[in-house]
């Protein structure tokens, strides 16, 4: 039983890793960022490239990936998203387009493959990130064997969630973001630079996705289209938890991850996944705004 609960916890933390960044961008800015999965993908490729070209290990690649994806996010916000605020469906389509562009850029090695130039670590093939020996195999805690890498992921997720909470609730930037979540016009009227805050928020959300990507690279397949399925899971968690609520996102990922593990263990993985979708539908039917919401005025 402990094994199953631990697997559930690990599934939850993977969901939360992807959803954290989305909770920030979707929750705070009301932008459906379909390119979020691609930020995870870029983070994973940063780890691959850092290993091949700079000799950096998985852990050292984490801050690097945060910087790379945060800058990429900032560029996307400045060039595209900024012009589309308040147009929900347009941002969805535009960011989806960006997602496809990014996937193909990696697959075609930024177009260089047309000229016969190949960059190690890019291209349509599958990539590989070496995992430090200490994170391979199992660790024994209280008589139970636990997967070392999954413990590492759970720990990193807790750290990232705490850091995100600290940014949102303990810094001036976070206070501005929360003001914008409640009422953007009023926040602007009070002298908050909404555009600048939004740009920083988008960069933060993208950077979190990049860190998620590095962690995924250690045990999942790194390929150009790896982000596409992740973004669906991410939105599922954010919507179930309640848009704009960090606590809701954490609670929803915990619920869905554990539920997935329990059903999958009792039946099989395919039914487990179906059951998760059933829970999401149920929650949205009963509480359309998600599990945790705050009252607007």
């Amino acid at each position: 039983m402990v094994d199953i609960l631990f697997i559930g916890l690990s599934l939850s933390s993977i969901l939360l890793l992807v959803a954290l960044g989305l909770a920030v961008t979707y929750g705070a800015m009301g932008i459906i960022n379909m390119a979020h999965g691609e930020m995870v993908m870029i983070g994973a490729y940063t780890a691959v490239m850092a290993n091949i070209w700079l000799g950096l290990g998985l852990i050292a690649a984490i801050p690097l990936a945060f910087a790379v994806t945060a800058l990429a996010g900032l560029a996307i916000e400045r060039l595209v998203v900024r012009r589309l605020y308040g147009r929900l469906l347009d941002t969805l389509l535009a960011t989806w387009g960006i997602a496809i562009l990014l996937q193909q850029a990696i697959r075609l090695e930024f177009g260089l493959s047309f000229f016969g130039i190949h960059i190690a670590g890019l291209g349509s093939g599958l990539q590989n990130v070496p995992v430090p020996g200490a994170l391979q195999g199992t660790v024994q805690i209280l008589g139970h064997d636990f997967n070392a890498y999954r413990i590492f992921i759970v720990a990193m997720t807790l750290i990232l969630a705490a850091a995100t909470w600290a940014v949102m609730y303990r810094t001036a930037l976070g206070m501005k973001v929360r003001a914008i979540i409640r009422n953007p016009q009023m926040a602007a009227a009070c002298g908050i630079d909404v555009q600048r805050t939004n740009a920083l928020t988008f960069a933060l959300g993208s950077g979190l996705a990049g860190v998620a990507g590095v962690l995924m690279a250690g045990f999942k397949t790194v390929a150009p289209d790896m982000g596409a399925t992740l973004v669906v899971d991410g939105f599922m968690v954010v919507v179930t938890g309640g848009v704009g609520s960090l606590l809701g996102t954490v609670a929803a990922s915990g619920l869905l991850g554990e539920f997935n593990a329990l059903v999958a263990m009792a039946t099989n993985d395919i039914l487990g996944r179906a059951a998760v979708f059933a829970v999401v539908i149920g929650v949205i039917l009963l509480k359309p705004a998600g599990l945790f919401t705050f009252k607007g005025r």
């Binding site: 199953i4 999942k220 399925t229 593990a261 999958a264 993985d269 395919i270």
Partner: peptide, 16 residues
């Protein structure tokens, strides 16, 4: 046992 095509979450299966 089967896992959906393209899925990569093997924790439960390997436990089984």
């Amino acid at each position: 046992e089967y896992l959906e095509l393209g899925h990569s979450e093997w924790a439960v299966m390997v436990n089984k």
